[in-house]
Amino acid sequence: MFRTPAPLWRAMLPVLVCLALTGCSSGGADAPSASRDSGDVPYTATTPGAPGSAGNADSAHADGPGRPGSVAPRPTHLSIPSIGVNSAVMRLGLNPDGTVEVPPAEKGMTVGWYTGNPAPGERGAAVLIGHNDTRFGKAVFHDLRKIAEGADIAIRNDRGAELHFRVTGTETVSKKAFPTGKVYGATDERALRLITCDGAFDTEGHPVDNLIVYATRS
């Protein structure tokens, strides 16, 4: 697994910040049609070589399940029984400008896995992104703010295994001060992060905050 040297990572931190999507919607107004304007979650300036990054969903992971050098299992389904979430999982990469993709607005009820970080269940921070609302209405993470510490999160992968994670905490942060290193950075845990929008709306009707859910393998 490629890791950026620590001094370089620290130097990159001012650049690796989370920005608000201009297409964030209060749920009723149509959002602009630009490729990043797909709803209400952040896109994060990052690179495939950031600490904790898998680089690519097809890359080999010596510390993942199975034999060293094996391709990591890919998540296919997310379930959070306590808030009624059941969703297929799509793959997300990077936009041409280096920001993280988000699910398109028309797939507002589908969660996306950022393939630049480890797969759920591998050592490191797996990141799943979902909309709160889109111009089409309520989306998959609309009730994520209701999740409680200790709640169970289940993820099935393409090998038929079901992995369970326990919520350890939640955090609401300003999109102007998104903790990129804390969310996407390296960790020795088999961790999971869920991200969506939250908070009040700005003058253009876009949520100004992000809700982050932290969980670890149970």
Rank of each mutant, 00 (worst) to 15 (best):
I155C: 02
I153C: 11
D37H: 12
A57F: 13
R193Q: 12
G137L: 04
P5S: 11
A148G: 03
L92S: 06
H131L: 05
G112C: 05
T187K: 07
P7H: 12
V100C: 09
A60H: 15
D37T: 08
E171N: 11
I155V: 14
V127T: 06
P51Y: 06
I80K: 03
G39V: 06
E122H: 11
A54W: 04
G52A: 05
C197L: 08
G52Q: 09
A215C: 09
H142G: 01
H206K: 15
A88I: 13
S218D: 15
P68Q: 11
R145M: 05
A50E: 10
T115P: 01
K138C: 00
L194F: 12
G205S: 10
F165M: 04
G93I: 03
G69W: 15
A6S: 06
P14G: 07
D143C: 00
I153M: 05
P5T: 03
S70I: 07
P32I: 13
V17T: 15
I80F: 07
T196F: 08
G98V: 05
S35F: 08
P75V: 03
H77P: 04
L78N: 07
A57R: 12
P103G: 03
D188C: 00
K175G: 15
Y114W: 15
G23C: 04
P120S: 01
E106M: 13
T203Q: 13
D209S: 10
E162N: 09
S26A: 15
S35P: 07
V89W: 10
S33P: 02
T99D: 07
V167N: 00
G93R: 05
A57S: 11
E171Y: 01
C24F: 08
I83S: 04
R74M: 13
P75W: 03
G181K: 13
I147W: 02
A177P: 03
T22V: 11
H77I: 02
T180R: 05
L92R: 04
H61E: 13
A34Q: 15
S79K: 15
I80Y: 03
I155F: 06
R190H: 11
I147Q: 00
T76I: 14
V102R: 06
G49F: 14
V71M: 11
T216G: 13
